[in-house]
Design a protein around this nucleic acid. Structure first.
Length: 159
DNA sequence: GCCAACGTTGGC
DNA sequence: GCCAACGTTGGC
């Protein structure tokens, strides 16, 4: 994927943080902390830019689905939960002096009137090569092609 | 540097 | 809860 990608997909388990939680957050904004995968980190650290568009995805739930959109409002900066011993994502190899993990801030754009479940997305020709739909895909931060992003918005009935 | 063992993700 | 598909770790 080229460094010019402007579209992303972020996964979250709604039991820990859902799009409804994001809607209730101050300024409908949150930091995307807790990512502990190098490929996902690199996307956040090196490629995400303010204004990039985001598909918001609920995983590990009864009906995994894309549930809305968000935008990047702050570019990559160190994830302080990595050096918080009480945090579930604590990593002793990271420190304020030498941070290993990274996060961005996102702001809610819209919650879809109807979520788009994986089962529905799998039937869409324009999404045939989408990373999310690849067998065995686990990346929690992944690039999305423009045509894919637009196809998803169309499915969601967003003008 | 190989690779087996282990831990995690996440759909089903 | 099962398990396939990954990523990471660590012995050698």
């Amino acid at each position: 994927m080229p460094a010019t990608s402007k579209y992303w997909l972020l996964k979250t388990e709604p039991e820990s943080f859902s799009i409804q939680d994001l809607a209730r957050a101050p300024k409908k904004t949150t930091c995307w902390d807790g990512v502990r995968n190098y490929q996902a980190r690199n996307f956040m650290r090196d490629e995400m830019q303010v204004g990039d568009r985001v598909l918001f995805y609920h995983s590990s739930t009864e009906s995994p689905a894309i549930v809305g959109t968000a935008t990047i409002v702050r570019e990559g900066y160190p994830d302080p939960t990595a050096w918080d011993k009480s945090d579930h994502h604590y990593d002793p190899a990271s420190s304020p002096e030498n941070p290993r993990w990274c996060m961005v801030d996102i702001r809610l754009e819209r919650i879809f009137d109807e979520a788009l479940p994986l089962s529905q997305l799998r039937g869409v020709a324009a999404l045939k090569e989408m990373e999310l739909l690849r067998k065995g895909s686990r990346l929690s931060v992944q690039p999305v092609r423009k045509v894919e992003f637009e196809a998803v918005l169309k499915l969601a009935g967003v003008k």
